[in-house]
Structures are given as structure tokens and as C-alpha cells.
Write a protein that binds this DNA or RNA. Structure first.
Lengths: 136, 136
DNA sequence: GCAGAACTACGATGGTCCTCGTACATCGGA
DNA sequence: TCCGATGTACGAGGACCATCGTAGTTCTGC
């Protein structure tokens, strides 16, 4: 919960979104942002896109409000940048900032996510299956 | 919240602690476990120790109950192993399992944590400086 | 100006998490 | 056997989070 600098220059419409400065990005916040399945999938899509993409290309199993919330969390925690572009809002990973602050972190997490998904696809969907819960 | 296998063989005293199997370790859970400052510091100490160490060597600014809670979270999320050794309980990182599931993740996070601490020591403590939080 | 599209803000709800104090269990040793 | 040390379990309180629906704002195009 870093005090995101609400860079609202004029008092009017908040057409400029607040982003934390690079030095204000905290590792715990980034990890927390990445710890949510929905947000992690967003980051994965963004990483594959290799550029900007609007909010509406994501098909997460949540409502639009919730998606907005997750985007905001990602932005306020320094994981992505968001800019208005007409009626759409473009999202992009802060690859440079993150790579500079925490070298390799983003790539490692993304690789781990892909790896886990690949393993999960072959291991069956029932997440409870692996639990074993050995009945004595 | 993975269904940790409650491996309680005999109905009596739970002298054997439940650990998730390697395949049951989820990336989101590991990230969540690492997203807490207290737990991250625990993991850092454990990483520096390069082996087992008891619960009582940590001087986190929390009560003993809370520390126990964090250790349990780390264990149930697959980050550490815990074994009884007399009155003490030894903790150790699951380096192998994590390295196998998510190559480089642990080392990257640990390096990021060290990096952030080093930067934070020179940047001063006043985190609220960048905040501004301009009330519209 | 007006309709539609894209997105946000707000409030509410239910759940999870962090923290703690207190009481209890286990082990080693006197 | 009894005591101290180590650590757990339980319950509670307060904060935070994820989710949603609804209403509102901003921009584009006719």
C-alpha cells in the first residue's frame, strides 16, 4: 500500500492516472500483485502482447468492475502503466523499471507461471487431486 | 489455500507436521507467502543459514503466536519444511523443490529483497515523502 | 445534440489475513 | 517427579481484499 502519488494536475477530470515512481515500487507489493490468479493472468497476457493492449481483451472469469480493480492494483503497485487512448485505456508492463529494480524477477515469475500451467494441463484439472490427503 | 495433507497417522499427538507434496505447490501460494514482510525476512534468514534453524532465532517485531502463524503459512504453502527436534522445531527452505518447480524464483526474489534493502538504507526511511496524496 | 462504447467510482458483502493474549502440550533436565 | 523452555491451538478483533451491481464520466461517431 504505497501512497501512490495522485498526479491530478488540474482539479477537473482525472484524465491522468497516478503511477508510483520507480523508486516507490516495493518488492512485497509486486509479489502481492502477482499472487492473485486473475492479476497473474493479466500480466501474462501483457507479457505475451509485448506492448500495449486495452482492458477489454482480457477474458477473465470476473466482472468488469473486478477487472478494473485488478488493473488498478497492478498499476498502483508498479507492475503496469495505464494511459488513456480515446475511449480505451492501454496497459503495458513496466518491464524496464521492474528489470532495473528486481532483475529477472518478472521473467522468472512468468516462466514459472507457464511452467505451472503446462504441468497442470497434464496433471488433470481437479486441483484437489494432488493434495493426496492420505487417509491413514 | 491448498488442501494440505494432514498426515496425522495416529490419532494422538500430532508430532508429524503436514507438508504439501511437491506437485501441490502452487505459484500463487508461494508468491503470497513471500509477499509478507515478516515471512520474507524469515525466508531470507533461512536462506542465509543454508540449513536448519530453530524458530527462536528470529527477532521479528511480532509476537510468538504470530511468528508461529507465519511459519505455518510458509510450510503449508510449500516454502519451508519443519521438523521436530526435541523441544525445538527446525526450519529449512525447500530449495530443491522450489528450484525444480520454479527455476530461479527463490534466488531472484532473495536477490531482489537484498537489493531493495540496500537501496532503502540509503534512500532514507520517510516513505511518506513521495506520497503527496493530493486531496482533490 | 444524441446514442453507444469503454471504463471508473461508489457502496455493500463475504471472506481472508495479520495480530495478539491466553491456555495447553511436549520435551529435556534437575 | 516437577520445572522451565519451546512451540501450538484457539478465539477474538481489526484491517484488508476480491467480488459484484449500479450509476456516472469521458470519448467517438452520426
Amino acid at each position: 500500500m504505497p501512497p501512490v502519488a495522485t498526479t491530478t494536475p488540474t482539479g477537473g477530470g482525472p484524465r491522468v492516472l497516478a503511477h508510483p515512481s520507480r523508486d516507490a515500487i516495493r518488492l512485497e507489493d509486486v509479489l502481492h500483485a502477482l499472487a492473485d490468479p486473475v492479476r497473474l493472468s493479466i500480466v501474462r497476457v501483457l507479457a505475451d502482447a509485448e506492448g500495449e493492449c486495452s482492458c477489454s481483451v482480457f477474458d477473465a472469469p470476473v466482472s468488469k468492475s473486478t477487472l478494473t480493480h485488478h488493473f488498478r492494483v497492478l498499476r498502483e503497485h508498479g507492475v503496469i502503466t495505464q494511459t488513456y487512448r480515446g475511449t480505451a485505456k492501454m496497459n503495458a508492463l513496466r518491464r524496464e523499471d521492474l528489470a532495473d529494480l528486481f532483475p529477472g524477477l518478472l521473467d522468472t515469475v512468468l516462466a514459472a507461471a507457464r511452467r505451472q500451467e503446462a504441468a497442470g494441463l497434464s496433471a488433470g484439472a481437479g486441483a484437489a487431486a494432488a493434495g493426496a490427503t492420505s487417509p491413514s
